[in-house]
C-alpha cells in the first residue's frame, strides 16, 4: 500500500467512512510505516483538539446562569422582530403554486379590458354598406328615403336608422335604434346590437365568416 493512499484512508477513517476491510489494511500499513503512524497520530489529535476547541466555552457550566439569561434575551429579540402579523400570503402563494393559471387569468383580464375599451370608445357615426349614395344624413340619423332601394347590406354604428324605403340586404344597427316606417322593407335580417356580449358575438361571427371567404 502506498503512503498517499493511506493518508486518504486515514481521513476517511476519522470521518467514519472507511469500510471495515480497508480499516484492517490501513492498520497493517500503519504497523509497517512509522511515518504514516506519526501522521495518523497527529491527525487523530488534531481531530480531537478541533472537536474540543469548538465545543469548549460554549456550554460552560460556571457561566450557565448568565448564558441562559442571555439566550432568553436573544429569544425575546428574535420574537420581537418578527412581523406582527404573518404576511397574508394567500394570493402570492397561489401565484407561486399555479403559474400557468395565473398567466391565463392575466391574459383574459387584459383581453377583456381591451375589448371593453374598444366597445366604449367609438361614439361617432359609422355607416358601412355597398350602396351609400342614396342615403340621407341628418345629424346622427341615417335615412333611407321613400322609394329608394339600397342594394346590399347596411350597417350603422352609433346612430338612428330611419327606413322609409327598401333595404335589399341585412340591416344591422349597433348602439342605436331603428325606426321603420310603414313603407319600409328589409329583405335580409334586421338586427339591433346594444349589449357588449351581442357586440362581441357580432364581431366574432363577422371575423370568422370573413375568414371563411
Amino acid at each position: 500500500m502506498k503512503c498517499n493512499v493511506a493518508i486518504v484512508w486515514m481521513h476517511d477513517y476519522l470521518d467514519d467512512d472507511l469500510p471495515r476491510e480497508q480499516v484492517k489494511e490501513l492498520k497493517e500499513h500503519l504497523m509497517a510505516c512509522p511515518d504514516c503512524r506519526q501522521r495518523f497520530e497527529q491527525l487523530k489529535r488534531t481531530d480531537a483538539f478541533l472537536h474540543a476547541t469548538m465545543v469548549e466555552g460554549l456550554h460552560d457550566s460556571a457561566d450557565a446562569g448568565t448564558d441562559s439569561a442571555a439566550s432568553r434575551a436573544l429569544t425575546e429579540k428574535i420574537m420581537r422582530q418578527l412581523p406582527a402579523q404573518r404576511r397574508k400570503q394567500g394570493w402570492t402563494a397561489f401565484i407561486r403554486r399555479h403559474p400557468a393559471l395565473t398567466v391565463a387569468v392575466v391574459f383574459c383580464l387584459v383581453m377583456f379590458s381591451s375589448f371593453l375599451a374598444m366597445w366604449g370608445q367609438n361614439s361617432e357615426l359609422i355607416v358601412r354598406g355597398t350602396d351609400l349614395q342614396q342615403l340621407v344624413f341628418e345629424g346622427d340619423r341615417v335615412i333611407v328615403p321613400e322609394g329608394v332601394q339600397i342594394h346590399g347590406d347596411l350597417t350603422i354604428e352609433n346612430g338612428i336608422a330611419e327606413v322609409h324605403g327598401e333595404v335589399l340586404g341585412n340591416l344591422t344597427v349597433i348602439d342605436g335604434t331603428t325606426n321603420l316606417a310603414s313603407t319600409a322593407k328589409i329583405v335580409g335580417e334586421n338586427r339591433q346590437i346594444n349589449q357588449a356580449i351581442d357586440w362581441l358575438w357580432y364581431k366574432v361571427t363577422t371575423t370568422v365568416s370573413g375568414l371563411n371567404f
Binding site: 481521513h11 476519522l14 478541533l50
Partner: peptide, 20 residues
Amino acid sequence: VKTRVHRGREFLRKKLERTL
C-alpha cells in the same frame, strides 16, 4: 464535503505540528 474536511484537517494538522 469530504475533500474540504480532509483539507481543513490537514491544514490544521500542519499548524499544530509543533505542539502535537
